[in-house]
Design a protein around this nucleic acid. Sequence first.
DNA 1: ATCCGGAATTGATCCTGATCCACGCGCGGG
DNA 2: CCCGCGCGTGGATCAGGATCAATTCCGGAT
Lengths: 245, 245
Amino acid sequence: MSGTATRSQLNLYQLRRTCGTCTLSELCLPMGMPRDDMRRLEELIVPRGPIGEGEHLFRIGEPFRALYAVRGGFFKTYLVEQSGREQVLGFHLPGELIGLDAIWPQKHQCSAVALNTASVCELPYAQITNLSQQLPGLQHSMLRLLSKELALSHSLAGDFTAEERIAGFLTSLATRMKVRGFSETHLTLSMSRRDLANYLRLATETVSRVFSRFEKEGLITVDRREVTLRDPEKLARFGNCLSID
Amino acid sequence: MSGTATRSQLNLYQLRRTCGTCTLSELCLPMGMPRDDMRRLEELIVPRGPIGEGEHLFRIGEPFRALYAVRGGFFKTYLVEQSGREQVLGFHLPGELIGLDAIWPQKHQCSAVALNTASVCELPYAQITNLSQQLPGLQHSMLRLLSKELALSHSLAGDFTAEERIAGFLTSLATRMKVRGFSETHLTLSMSRRDLANYLRLATETVSRVFSRFEKEGLITVDRREVTLRDPEKLARFGNCLSID
DNA sequence: ATCCGGAATTGATCCTGATCCACGCGCGGG
DNA sequence: CCCGCGCGTGGATCAGGATCAATTCCGGAT
C-alpha cells in the first residue's frame, strides 16, 4: 500500500513540473509564454494519472469545473442526440484541450472518453481565468485555442464525398501527428471503424470500401488499424485538404 | 457634403453611447457587466454606419484587427474552398459577434457580407483584450461567446435528413428572433434559397420541395421569403431541435 | 405595359452512399 | 482447443437527395 502511494507521489512529482519541460508546451495552453509565467501556470495544473481505455474524463451534462489538456493517449469526444444516436465530435491528440464548449453554459456539452491508456493535465477553470487576468499571454492563448477550434469545425462544414472526407482525415491526422513528433506516414488509428465512420458521417462499410479502394490505387496500405500513406501528396490533393495545425 | 457630415456625426453620436441603452446588450459582449465597466467598453467601440446589402464587412484572408457585433440587419459568413465552391457558415442576427475564428491566425478565416442594410459595432481586438485584462466580466463574456459558437457548430455536426435540417433551422431561427423581440411565428428569411440550401448542405431544389411538403402538411405557410410557422411544436419535434440560445 | 433576367418551384432521372446481409478473421474465455 | 462474439470486409439492393431540364414567378429597366 505504501509502495503504491510512493509511486503515485513520484508520478505526481514528475508531472507537477510539466509545462517547462513538456514537449507539448508549444501546442498547449502555455504556447509562447515567458518561463516565469509558465511556472505560475504550472502551479494550478492538476495531473491526472493513467486513465484506462474506455474510461470517461467527463460526461455530457456534468458541471463544468476544469479544462483538460491531453498529455498522452487519444481521446474521443461525442454527444448523444435526443434520438439516442451518438455523434462523434472529434479525436484529441496530446497537447490539445478538451471541454472548451462547456465554458458557455458551465455544463459539459459532450462526453470525453479515452481510446487507449491516457493521461491529462487538469486545468481548473476558475483559477485559470483568474491567472489570465494577470498574464496577457495566457489570456491570448485561451482565445487562440478556442478560435482555432472554431475554425476547425468550420472547415468540416462543407459537403464532401466519402473519398474526400477520408483522404482529408488521413492527411490531417498525418500532419497533426508529425507536429507531435510521430511519423507522418505510418499512422496508428486508435479509433474503431465505427467511431471513424460516425465522425466522418459515413457508414462503416463505406469507410471500409474507400480504404480498400485507396489501397488498390496504391495511395495507402491498410493493416487493421495501421495505415501507411504511400502517396501523401496525391492523397492531400484528393481531400480538398483542410488541415488546420 | 456638410449635410452628410452632420448626419453621420449625429449617427456617430447616437451610436457612441450604445451599450448602456442597447437592447442587445444582454446578448452581446457586455452581457451581465456592471454599468461602469460597460462605459469603459463603450469607449472602445467604433460604430460603423449603414452597410448596404451585398457589401462586405471583411473578406477571407484580410488581416484581423477587430471583431464586429451586429447592431442591425443580417449578415452571412462564408468561406471559399480551394475548389472554388462557396460554403455558407452561418447567418448572424443583431447582438451576435462576427470574426471570432480570426483570432487564432490573426487573419480572417471567412468573409462576411450584409444580407440587407445593416450596421455594426467595431470592437478593436487589441484594445478589447487589453481592457479585458482589467474587467473579469468582459473576459468571461468573450470566452462564453466563443464557447457558445463552438457548441453551436458542434450541434450541426450530425447527419440529418433534409426535413430535419430545415425544421431545425426554422425552429432555431424562430427562437433566435423571439429573444431579439421579433415575432417567433412569422419569419422573414433574409437569405436566398441558394444561401439557405448551401448552409444546410442541400440543393436549392430540395429546400424548395421540403418547404412545399411542409406547407401541404400544414406545418408552415410560405410566401416568397416570408415563412409563417403554423405548428411550431410539431416542427420542433420534426427537427431534432438543437436550438442553441 | 412590355420585356428581360434571375430566383424559385416542380417534374424526371440518376447516383452516391446507406442498408441489409453473409462471411472471415482474431482474440478472449470456457 | 474450440467456441463465440465483436470487428472488419465485401456483395446486393435500396432510397434520399443531387442533378438535369422545363416552367413560372417576380422585380426592375425600358
